[in-house]
Every structure is written in C-alpha cells, then in structure tokens.
Design a protein around this nucleic acid. Sequence first.
DNA 1: TCGTTATTGCAATTCGTTCGCAATACTGGT
DNA 2: ACCAGTATTGCGAACGAATTGCAATAACGA
Lengths: 137, 137
Amino acid sequence: MTLETVLRGSEHRVTKPRQLVWDVLLDAQRHLSAADIVAEVHRRDPGVNPSSVYRALTLFTELNIVRESHVGDTSMWEPAHDDAVIHLVCDHCGRTMHYDTSAVSTLRRQLQRHADFSPGSIDVRVSGRCAHCARST
Amino acid sequence: MTLETVLRGSEHRVTKPRQLVWDVLLDAQRHLSAADIVAEVHRRDPGVNPSSVYRALTLFTELNIVRESHVGDTSMWEPAHDDAVIHLVCDHCGRTMHYDTSAVSTLRRQLQRHADFSPGSIDVRVSGRCAHCARST
DNA sequence: TCGTTATTGCAATTCGTTCGCAATACTGGT
DNA sequence: ACCAGTATTGCGAACGAATTGCAATAACGA
C-alpha cells in the first residue's frame, strides 16, 4: 500500500511535502521526533515549510498510516505497524527496538473474555537496557 | 508510605504545594491532566502558584511516586502503581480504567529469556470501548 | 489546457511550561 | 521556642513547539 494509494483513496492530494514526510519516515529505521522529521525534510528540500510537516503528520495520523508514541515527554513518529510488534526503549541510549510477541494477542483475548471492555489497539512499551548498553556499563 | 516519609527520606521539604498536589492525585480516582491538577489545587488554595504544581509533579516523577502517561496528546498523571495494572482507555468517554493481569509478568519473563533486552518498567495501554459506551452507541 | 479548490508557505500567534530571582517558610541545631 | 541557613515558593517574564489565517500556489478532474 503506497502513500499515493492511501491519499487518492481518501480524496487527498499527493503533494511534495506529504511525499517527503512519508519518505523520511520510511527511510528512518527508528522513531523520529517531529523536530527530526522537520530537519530531515528540510535537508532534502529546504523549500518545504515546517507547518506542512506538522499538517502531514496530523493527516497521516487520521488516516492511520503513522503512529505517534511518547518517549519521555517527546512525541515520536513511525509508520503504523501491527500491534503484536511492541516497543523496547533503551533508557541508556534512547534507541527503540521492535519485538514481536504473542503476548499482545493473548492479552486481547483475555480482555475480550474477562474484562468489561472491548479492546481496539494495544500499545506496549517496555523501558530497560538494550544488549549493547547492558554490556557497556 | 506517606508523602512525608518519601520527601523526608530523600532530603526534600514537606511543603503546602507538594502536599496539595499529592492530595489531589490521591483523591482523584482517575488520571488527571496537568491543567486539571493546577485547577483543583487552585480551588483548594488559590495562593498556590501553577509553577509550584509543575515543580511538584517533576519532583514526584523523579522520586517515582507518580507516573506520567499520555492519552492522545496530553500528559496524564496518577500515583505510581504496579506494572501488572494496565490501562484501558475508552475512546468514547475518555475514561481510563485499571485492569490487573498476569500478561505483563508473562511478557517480562519472555523478554528476559528470549530478547536481548533487560526489561525495566512495562507500560500497557489499551484503547477501545468501555462497557458503558459500548452499550450506549 | 483550464478552472476549481485543496494545500502550501509565511508570519503572526497561541498557550502550556519553564526560568530567574527576590521573598518566604521549612528544617535541624541550639 | 527560636534562629540561621537554605530549599522552595510566587511572580512575571520568557520560551518554544505547534497552530492558525490568509494570499499564493499547485494538484487534478474535466
């Protein structure tokens, strides 16, 4: 599913700022802050204004193709992905890793059966030490 | 463990703003935004300044007696509690419920065994529909 | 290619939070 | 109970990320 497909399918126009923001998100193999994205987009095309980046992120969130998460007190962005992929955030180097686990679907089933709550998306965030930082300190 | 004990134990002073912020957090049986806390503290004692509320929240976070979480794009605060208690956030009415599950400790064991990551705190947030809102729509 | 209008760039603005500093009030020692 | 020392407060100013209003621009269906 390309960005173009999603935008066309929702009656939105395919524009340079939107395309750039999307490219930056895909290229980055990590979570990016709004500031990171603004900077990288600006690097690729200085003519693109920060407000267009913010607007693109807002739109993408509504279209559910990006996911906003919070590490500490800053928002981080990444292309949306499946629930079963959870986030491991290293306290030390700040890197975020993905980890695929069945625990999420187990929890979802448990909620459906036992809690008075019908679960939509599930967000799991683990803070701790990544292998590299655990070794080096 | 009272606030006084925690503050004394960490060489911090027990002051009216801090006590008020703590009382407000304990009294509220839900998550509060910074604005909520500022408002309620002000209601109880108009002499207390918003910046003292922010400072208290920052301090309490460092002392690990409150937990900051993010619902949508606003920070929410609550007294810290055990990991096993996860958050169910209703998309419709915005209320946050607690749910106690073994899924968290299971996940922690799984991570310790199989992932190259040593887990600290685990934060699980489920968005969906609470029983009340599921019925009424 | 043209006309319509969604989207952009820009500058100004908003508003929640932080900061600097003098005044205040907690605390440990007497 | 008082005092001295200093952490903490209240206040106003400052900050900065994000938002907004608007005229100019560019995407896209016809």
